[in-house]
Amino acid sequence: MAVTCTSLEHVRENIDRLDRQIVALLAERGSFVSQAARFKKDSDGVKAPQRVEQVISKVRDLAQTLGANPDVTEQVYRAMIAAFIQQELAEHAALVQPTT
């Protein structure tokens, strides 16, 4: 639950605090994305558009439940997922590429 801030500085301190938590969670999510690359057969498995839509549906519902804007949440998740797919594609390619 958000606190009521008494100044712009207080708002920014709270945003900075949340940013630290969000980045820590991104790092944790990224480590699981890296692990997932090992289990996927090909780049289509990495892209997994059906799974992307499942995640989007889930987070939109979660946003609604938690009082977040579902449209903003979807946009953030689509950008994050696209970036993680690029990371995972690179990691997957490195896994399947023979070493010389």
Rank of each mutant, 00 (worst) to 15 (best):
P70L: 03
C5D: 07
R29M: 04
A79M: 13
Q86N: 10
I15V: 15
R51L: 14
Q54M: 15
L25Q: 14
T73H: 01
F84G: 08
R78T: 10
R51V: 06
Q21R: 12
R12I: 08
A48R: 04
S7E: 05
T73Q: 07
P49T: 08
C5N: 10
V46S: 00
R38W: 13
D44L: 10
R29I: 12
F32C: 13
K47W: 08
C5S: 07
A24K: 10
A2F: 10
I22C: 09
A36D: 06
N14W: 02
C5E: 03
E88S: 06
Q86A: 12
Q97V: 10
V52G: 01
T100V: 13
L18K: 00
F84Y: 06
L95S: 03
Q87K: 05
T100M: 15
V59Q: 00
D71N: 13
A68V: 12
E13W: 12
L26F: 09
P49A: 05
V72K: 01
Q86P: 02
L26Y: 07
A27C: 09
R38K: 10
K40N: 04
C5M: 04
R20Y: 07
A93R: 04
Q64K: 07
P98H: 07
P49M: 08
I85W: 00
E28I: 02
V59E: 00
L18C: 05
P49I: 02
F84W: 04
T100C: 09
T99I: 12
V59Y: 09
G67H: 01
Q97A: 13
Q75A: 14
E74R: 05
R29P: 00
V59H: 01
A90H: 03
I22A: 12
T100F: 14
D16C: 07
Q35K: 08
T99Y: 09
K40L: 15
A24F: 02
D42H: 09
V11R: 10
V52K: 14
I81W: 10
D16Y: 09
G45N: 07
A79P: 02
I81P: 00
A2W: 02
E28D: 14
D16M: 10
D16V: 06
V46M: 07
S34F: 01
R17I: 09
A93V: 12
K40S: 10
I15G: 03
R29Y: 00
V3Q: 08
A36I: 07
V52D: 05
L62R: 03
K47P: 02
T65D: 01
E9Y: 10
V52T: 11
L95E: 06
L95F: 05
A63N: 04
I15H: 04
R78Y: 13
